[in-house]
C-alpha cells in the first residue's frame, strides 16, 4: 500500500461515511423538529423559556455546572433515572429544541437536573443550596452569586437570580407526542 492518494481517499471516505451515516441522517430526522402539542389543539411544548432563564443558562454554562450535573432522563429499561425521582418520563429530543446549546452532560457527581424545576420547592431553598450546599456534599458553594443583605442574610444578585430562574425552568413533566404522561 504505497499509494498516498489511495490512503487519503480511503481515509476521507471513512470520515465521510460516518459523517453522512450518523450526522446527516440524524439531521434529516431531527433537524426540523420544533414545538408541538401533545394532543390536537393543546398547548405547544416545550414551553418558551422566560428571558431570565435564558440568561441563567449562560451562568450555568459559565460556572461549568455540567461537569457534575446531567440533564437527561433515561427510559426505565436503561438505568434507574426515573426510579431515582429525576423525571416522570424519559427525555425526548423535542424537549431540547429551544435550547441554543444543550447541556446534556456526561458525568453525574450530583443528581440529574433535567426535571429539577418540578421538584424544587422554592427560590429560597435553591438559593440556600447554591450559597451553602449541605455539609459533606461534593457541590461547591457559589458565594459570588449572592450579596450580603442589610440584615446579614445572603440575597441572590443579578446572576444568582437568573440562575435560580433557569433551574426552575428545567421541566420535563409535560406530555409530548413522543412521551405521553400516564394519567
Amino acid at each position: 500500500m504505497n499509494n498516498l492518494n489511495l490512503i487519503l481517499a480511503g481515509v476521507f471516505s471513512t470520515v465521510a461515511a460516518s459523517f453522512g451515516g450518523l450526522l446527516l441522517a440524524g439531521h434529516a430526522q431531527l433537524g426540523a423538529l420544533g414545538r408541538a402539542p401533545a394532543e390536537e389543539g393543546g398547548p405547544l411544548f416545550p414551553a418558551l423559556e422566560p428571558g431570565l432563564a435564558i440568561q441563567g443558562r449562560q451562568v450555568y454554562l459559565q460556572l461549568g455546572c455540567v461537569a457534575c450535573h446531567t440533564q437527561q432522563v433515561r427510559p426505565a429499561g436503561q438505568g434507574s433515572d426515573i426510579a431515582q425521582g429525576w423525571g416522570v418520563r424519559p427525555s425526548v429530543a423535542r424537549d431540547y429544541v429551544l435550547q441554543s446549546q444543550v447541556a446534556l452532560g456526561n458525568r453525574r457527581v450530583g443528581p440529574d437536573l433535567a426535571n429539577y424545576g418540578a421538584r424544587a420547592k422554592s427560590d429560597a431553598e435553591i438559593a440556600a443550596h447554591l450559597s451553602a450546599p449541605a455539609a459533606g456534599s461534593a457541590m461547591p458553594a457559589f458565594p459570588t452569586l449572592f450579596n450580603q443583605g442589610k440584615d446579614g442574610s445572603l440575597q441572590p444578585n443579578e446572576r444568582g437570580t437568573a440562575l435560580i430562574a433557569y433551574l426552575k425552568s428545567l421541566r420535563q413533566d409535560y406530555s409530548s407526542p413522543e412521551a405521553k404522561l400516564k394519567q
Binding site: 461515511a17 440524524g26 431531527l30
Partner: peptide
Amino acid sequence: LFLFAGWTGPATLLGSPVPLWI
C-alpha cells in the same frame, strides 16, 4: 480501525434522547 471508530460515537449515548437506530 478507521472504518469503524468514527461510527462508535453514539455508543456513548445509550439511553440519551437520540433516535434508537443511531
